[in-house]
Design a protein around this nucleic acid. Structure first.
Length: 304
DNA sequence: TGCAGTGTTGCTTC
DNA sequence: CGAAGCAACACTGC
């Protein structure tokens, strides 16, 4: 699920619902661990690390949440930032929960029925807020990671991610310069590399390539300047469209109120295998190939 | 029933 | 070194 538009939707939700709240407690079943950039090896799978985590975030007031690549940073007023990566199936939920026999479930007072959606179970980390409500991490597959860093360390960490495709500084020249760092690699693979461009995953790379009419296996250096222009626009418009529709809930993704996004009904390529291409006048069919350990979907006619 | 496939990414192996 | 493949985990669908 969570690529740039889904993570952005989550961050927007945190900022509209829980900004200003203070964290008064944290619970975890230790099923999640922290992101492992070279500089941050410790794991919440150890009780010792979790004790330190608790000590660092309890009493902190949420100033603002921020997205970098597919990561969420929640800045607290005590100089600490909570760092969350939702990986494949993680998502954050805001609700009123109760702990019953080692499992958190929505309280009877919780009026938001979406939180009772089966996809919104599997809670592995719970932040209790000063209004008695909770920010919960739901994650079936338990790949999501949670840790903390000093806020002052973030500029150094942000350097490990590529440029942000929706920022004003992401010009066509930045785009091509980044892609040219991998001239011999297939374009789809390069688009997925977070160090080249931040935030693109399997869904939006398929969509961007469909928009640009480029086959996913084309090598970067074989792509013409005209095609690059189309791809640059395609990347930006696919991501913006994802945000406009509140993200993609093909699978587990939900916004922090537990509600599905709507982008899954809007795909042109992703997971439309065997269906007709919807580009105007195109007689093609969407094809799927296995590639780089995942699926790539593209039109067999207009993507060349 | 069984196995391929699922949004991510870092580690291992060659 | 780059590149390919896999592992982490649980569930769905063919």
């Amino acid at each position: 699920m969570p690529e740039l538009p889904e993570v952005q939707t989550t961050v927007n939700g945190i900022n509209s619902f829980i900004k200003g709240r203070t964290i008064v407690d944290v619970w975890t079943d230790l099923a999640v661990e922290n992101p492992t950039l070279p500089s941050h090896k410790t794991s919440t799978k150890s009780k010792k690390f979790f004790t330190l985590f608790k000590k660092s975030v309890i009493g902190g007031k949420i100033i603002e949440a921020e997205r970098r690549a597919k990561n969420i940073f929640i800045h607290l007023d005590n100089g600490i930032s909570i760092w969350i990566h939702m990986k494949m199936t993680g998502h954050l939920l805001y609700g009123k929960y109760v702990l019953i026999s080692k499992e958190w479930t929505p309280s009877t007072e919780e009026k938001n029925e979406a939180l009772r959606d089966p996809f919104n179970k599997y809670l592995h980390t719970i932040f209790t807020l000063d209004n008695g409500r909770h920010l919960a991490l739901s994650d079936v597959r338990k790949f999501a990671k949670v840790t903390f860093v000093k806020t002052t360390e973030l500029p150094e960490i942000y350097k490990e991610f590529g440029p942000e495709p929706l920022e004003d500084t992401f010009t066509f020249s930045v785009f091509t310069k980044q892609l040219q760092k991998r001239p011999t690699r297939p374009i789809k693979e390069v688009l997925l590399d977070q160090k080249i461009i931040a935030g693109i995953g399997n869904i939006y790379s398929d969509e961007a390539l469909w928009l640009a009419g480029i086959h996913p296996l084309r090598t970067v250096r074989d792509i013409t300047d005209t095609e690059m222009q189309l791809l640059y626009k395609g990347v930006i418009s696919a991501l913006k469209k994802g945000i406009d529709f509140g993200g993609d809930s093909t699978s587990d993704y939900r916004d922090i109120t537990g509600t599905r996004g709507a982008f899954q009904g809007k795909h042109e390529a992703y997971r439309r295998t065997g269906q007709p291409c919807r580009k105007r006048g195109c007689p093609g069919t969407i094809e799927r190939i296995a590639f780089s350990g995942r699926g790539a979907h593209f039109c067999d006619t207009h993507q060349t």
